[in-house]
Design a protein around this nucleic acid. Structure first.
Lengths: 215, 215
DNA sequence: CTTCGTAGCAGAACACGTTCTGCTACGCCG
DNA sequence: CGGCGTAGCAGAACGTGTTCTGCTACGAAG
């Protein structure tokens, strides 16, 4: 057990870790966490939300059901970890290749368009991510459970940084507008998944929404 | 008094019927259909989506599981019938008491605000309706199953009629904008259900979205 | 060393959506 | 009348998310 030396700082590469336990996770634990979330992502890519079966995740991750549930207390929480991970990847991508649009609105729209492109590249993952992200928490649960369940995974921060720069403090109104664009992004993506919009139409609609709302 | 969902008016005819069979439904069948959908609505009001349990619906409606599934081939289809019913009630309500805003945008916003008010009056129903309305159809199913599954239940037509009059043909752009407002309506309502927005904040946000998008 | 608390494991058990089995009743056509 | 197709019924069975039971291993405390 490589004890984490005096520093309680969580190491940065085990991005899938959940930090829900005593604050210190051994390397073996971190690896287990990552195996579980990766298994979920792989299964999602193969067949969407319903293909992510907990028994199968446990089998692929070489972990017992009880262990899986110790770290991720539900299928949705497991998938949320995966979603957070992917959103972080989007953030990294945006930081590396900043959108080059002329105005903040165009740049923000570019972020959402890229996110949609990522969904196009993995529709199974998209299906799982949106399934878990978009339904209301169990009725009444928001009173008792962890707040913001499922909505700490958001594009708003990334889009804000891309549009106005990483250090710019955005106004409440701008924040609201970004949330609205994100809502529409979700709606368009679901419509695309359900065959009601072509991918190109969805893409265009997303950019349109960003233009219209962020001015 | 923007009450829409809880009108005590005894519903005259079998609005809940689905007409999915031979087109010919007997009196008894229609009554059965209605009992099933009403049971679903009642259970939803009591505890949201997860409280609508098919065994319980069957028990309350005094119907066998097989019969329930003959008419509503899944829990979601059953709840969609209820949603269509409630949306029709909203349409009637709007036709009876036309929004009196000065501009089409304000009138359309009023429709969505009333719909939200109906959700406030029955959060359990709201939870069930949004759960069923907002998640992607099972992965790949749009290729094989009935198209538009879940999206024939929409506010767009009602809002259009209220904003521009029942006979006005709206432009594609206006239609798109209304769809966007509906998307945002859903997002706000979910945020409210999940405790991330107060009802008043959600209401205001919905009106704001209508103003901003429909101009 | 012993004791203990905790992470982990295998697998059974349970809940609820859904499907299947086997039966009855009834209307309709010969 | 006799057969047949369909709606309905009761209840078992099945799949998957979730929980429970009982066990092992191992490091820390005493």
């Amino acid at each position: 057990m490589t004890q984490v030396g005096g520093t309680p700082v969580p190491d940065t590469d085990t991005v899938l870790s959940e930090e829900r336990l005593s604050g210190r996770t051994s390397e073996v634990q971190a690896a287990r966490l990552e195996r579980m979330a990766r298994a979920a992502i792989e299964l999602a890519g193969r067949g969407g939300y319903e293909a992510v079966q907990m028994r199968e995740v446990a089998r692929i991750a070489k972990v017992a059901m009880a262990t899986l549930y110790r770290y991720y207390p539900s299928k949705n929480q497991l998938l949320l970890a995966a979603v957070r991970y992917e959103i972080r990847k989007l953030g990294d991508d945006v930081a590396r290749r900043r959108p080059r649009g002329a105005t903040p609105e165009v740049r923000a729209g570019e972020v959402f368009a890229r996110a949609f492109q990522a969904m196009r590249n993995d529709p199974g993952y998209a299906h799982a991510a949106l399934s878990v992200r978009q339904s209301p928490v169990p009725f009444g649960a928001h009173e008792t459970s962890t707040p913001r369940d499922g909505h700490d995974a958001t594009f708003v921060g990334i889009a804000a940084a891309a549009a106005w720069g990483p250090d710019h403090e955005i106004t409440a109104e701008q924040y609201l507008a970004l949330q609205m664009v994100e809502s529409l992004w979700i709606g368009c993506t679901i419509d695309w998944l359900n065959g009601r919009l072509t991918a190109d139409a969805a893409d265009e609609r997303i950019r349109f929404a960003a233009r219209k709302l962020l001015t």
